[in-house]
């Protein structure tokens, strides 16, 4: 099986540790992962801000870059849902606009092969205990696109619960959005900030020292809020917890 890492532009640029963690985790599980260097951005920011037509070349580029792999793994529920849910919709809209099936046909192959990291671990590899060790109290925030678009369900928390040394505590109001929302964070910054503050306060109330999620965009918003609120908690991507072992602690 040829497996490609679709890291996402945000992770590539700002959170390379998450990428390294995925590589380390998958290699520990016997999966050799490739990073096609031509990858850039899935187009989600364009699409969700109203620039669907400008997202189309990015989607085509994604398909060119990843089309030949058997599985495409991404440590982002949000970008994963862009490919899985919105690429087919882009194809349909192009058809509805009187263009041909070209876009739909170009994008179709990558859609079913794209897996969010926890889906790939649980569904494809069939593991929930990935041999990780992480001696911290952790609370998990299910980010919206992973939760509702991809339907990740309890995959992330099953993976976390199997981590040795990890004390998983429930986050009150876990299903509520953190307030990031892409350009929402700046277009409606007051509401976004209020949502972020409430999420951080809820996380603090658990007594956990780590707030975990499977989307660094949301964690960027929450982490930025945490340092401003001077909380003692840290935001950590799920992949980095799963990559951590007793011999090689990640963070």
């Amino acid at each position: 099986m040829r497996v490609a890492l679709f890291l996402t532009c945000v992770n590539d640029t700002l959170y390379p540790d998450t990428g390294r963690a995925v590589v380390k985790l998958l290699s520990r599980l016997g999966v050799e992962v490739d990073f096609p260097a031509a990858q850039t951005c899935c187009g989600q920011a364009h699409y969700n801000t109203g620039y669907r037509h400008q997202a189309e070349p990015l989607a085509r580029h994604f398909s060119d870059v990843f089309g030949e792999y058997d599985a495409i793994v991404t440590p982002s529920g949000s970008c994963g849902s862009m490919v899985r849910e919105l690429y087919p919709r882009m194809g349909e809209r192009a058809r509805a606009e009187g263009r041909d099936d070209g876009l739909a046909r170009t994008l179709a192959p990558v859609v079913p092969k794209t897996y969010e990291l926890t889906e790939f671990l649980v569904d494809v590899l069939g593991v929930t205990d990935v041999g990780a060790y992480y001696p911290h109290t952790v609370t998990y925030h299910p980010t919206c696109h992973g939760l509702r678009s991809l339907g990740l369900g309890d995959r992330p928390t099953r993976l976390l619960a199997a981590v040795e040394g990890l004390d998983l505590v429930e986050l009150p109001g876990a299903r509520e959005c953190c307030g990031f929302g892409g350009t929402f964070a700046v277009k409606n910054s007051d509401v976004s900030a209020a949502m972020g503050t409430d999420k951080v306060r809820a996380a603090e109330s658990t007594g956990a020292d780590v707030l975990c999620a499977a989307d660094n965009s949301c964690l960027m918003h929450l982490g930025g809020t945490m340092t401003r609120l001077r909380t003692a908690m840290r935001p950590v991507h799920l992949a980095e917890i799963l990559a951590s072992t007793e011999k090689e602690p990640w963070s």
């Binding site: 590539d12 700002l14 990428g19 963690a21 990073f35 900030a193 401003r228």
Partner: peptide
């Protein structure tokens, strides 16, 4: 106004990958 900006890392993932081809993955 309400959130700190993330710190840009010394090296992007793609540069790290080009340099190491994914070997020796560990946190920066």
């Amino acid at each position: 106004a309400t959130r700190d900006l993330p710190t840009v890392p010394k090296e992007s993932f793609r540069d790290w990958w080009q340099r190491t081809q994914g070997r020796g993955a560990g946190p920066a």
